[in-house]
Simulated scan of single mutants.
Amino acid sequence: TADDVEFNADMWAKPDESRESLITLYRRVGAHSSATIEALTLDTIGRVPWWTGDRSAASLHEILVHLIAETHRHAG
């Protein structure tokens, strides 16, 4: 069940995932992100379901700043 899954378990590669499949996923996500950024204005509001309370409604600008900070923190 979903309750049995470790928190953030989707943040690590699984032993059965190939480098090629991870790179393909990374590129697909990048293309989707680029299309989203091109299609929307920075003040467009979206929902981040795992952000709690009022914080779940965030503008594209807020989400991009968050992603920059997270990339800096984790990939520095």
Rank of each mutant, 00 (worst) to 15 (best):
N8T: 10
A57H: 14
T24G: 12
T44C: 15
A75N: 08
F7T: 15
P15Q: 10
D16R: 04
I63R: 01
K14F: 14
L60F: 07
R27K: 11
G53C: 01
H32E: 09
S18K: 05
R19H: 10
V29D: 08
F7S: 07
T71V: 11
R73H: 12
T36N: 02
G30C: 10
D10Q: 06
W50A: 07
A35K: 08
H72C: 09
L42P: 09
D43W: 00
V48R: 02
A58V: 11
T52R: 08
D10A: 05
F7W: 09
P15S: 12
S34N: 14
L42R: 10
S21P: 03
V29G: 03
V29M: 11
A35F: 00
S56V: 03
S33N: 14
R73L: 08
R47F: 07
T71Q: 13
V48Y: 11
H61T: 02
A57F: 15
I63F: 14
L42M: 14
A39T: 07
G76R: 14
M11P: 01
D16G: 03
A39V: 01
E38W: 02
E70R: 02
E17I: 07
E62L: 03
I63T: 05
I37S: 00
A31W: 01
V48G: 02
K14E: 15
R19T: 02
W12M: 10
P15H: 07
R28E: 13
S21R: 06
A9D: 08
A57D: 09
L22S: 04
W12S: 11
S33A: 14
H61M: 05
L42D: 15
A2G: 02
L40I: 00
S59W: 01
I37G: 01
A31Y: 00
E17M: 14
T36L: 15
T36M: 15
K14P: 01
S56T: 06
H66A: 09
S59C: 00
E17W: 15
L25P: 01
G53A: 00
H66E: 07
S59I: 04
R55I: 00
L42I: 10
T44L: 09
V65D: 06
A2T: 07
T71Y: 15
A75M: 07
G53H: 03
I68M: 06
H72F: 09
R28H: 13
I37D: 04
G76S: 09
S59G: 00
L60T: 03
H32T: 00
D3Y: 08
G46C: 11
A39G: 05
T24Q: 15
R19A: 06
D3C: 08
H32S: 12
N8F: 11
V65Y: 02
H66R: 01
W12P: 01
L40Q: 10
W12E: 11
L60R: 03
W50T: 15
P15F: 08
A58K: 02
L60M: 12
R47W: 04
R28M: 08
D4H: 00
L64P: 03
R73E: 08
G53K: 03
L25K: 08
G53E: 07
E6W: 08
D10R: 04
A58R: 04
D3M: 13
V65N: 01
W51Q: 04
E20M: 03
L22E: 05
A9G: 09
G46M: 14
I63G: 00
A2S: 10
G30M: 12
M11G: 13
A2I: 04
L25R: 09
K14M: 13
G53W: 03
